[in-house]
Amino acid sequence: MEITFYLSAAIAIAATLMVITVSNATHALLYLIVSLLAVAIVFFVLGAPFAAALEIIIYAGAIMVLFVFVMMMLNLGKAAAAREQGWLNPGIWTGPGVLAALLLAELAYIFAQGGDTPWGTAAVTAKEVGIALFGPYLLGVELASLLLLAGLVGACHLGWNQAGIETGHEEERGHENG
């Protein structure tokens, strides 16, 4: 069963190498998502299923979607339509696709072996994590909520200024067209 750990570790390293060497930002994002999925499988194999679920939901789900949104906002140029055609080229998504297929095969292998606790090691369940989180680490939870609030206010403030600039441009364009 150790093969699952080493295979997903190799996939994580290979995908991360591609992230820092590939030139197109969107391709790098695809490889980064694959790398995070591989790390999630490593978490699962190490007996931390709750951490694996969080890694997929928050990292590969929410944070990467934020990256994709920003990338799409930056791509609003004349070349965007031509680039959209380029996405359909199979050469772009074969690399991440093959790595993700390997991870899927690995997951199928884990569940075929019998599922929950990979090698009979006691998994640290979500219940224990929750008890620890809201017991001794309650102050940390409060601080994290404060940090997230600060991040929310900061991003809102920065986005507010940028929205003002953009609407100014839009009005100018509207006047020129009219």
Partner: peptide, 28 residues
């Protein structure tokens, strides 16, 4: 086999989320 490692991972996730939201707003 302690839960503390995963608790710290949750805190790191919160830090990463706050950092990336502010960072991407600055980038825009």
């Amino acid at each position: 086999e302690q839960a503390d490692g995963q608790v710290m991972l949750i805190f790191i996730l919160a830090v990463a989320a706050a950092e990336v939201s502010v960072g991407l707003a600055l980038l825009l």
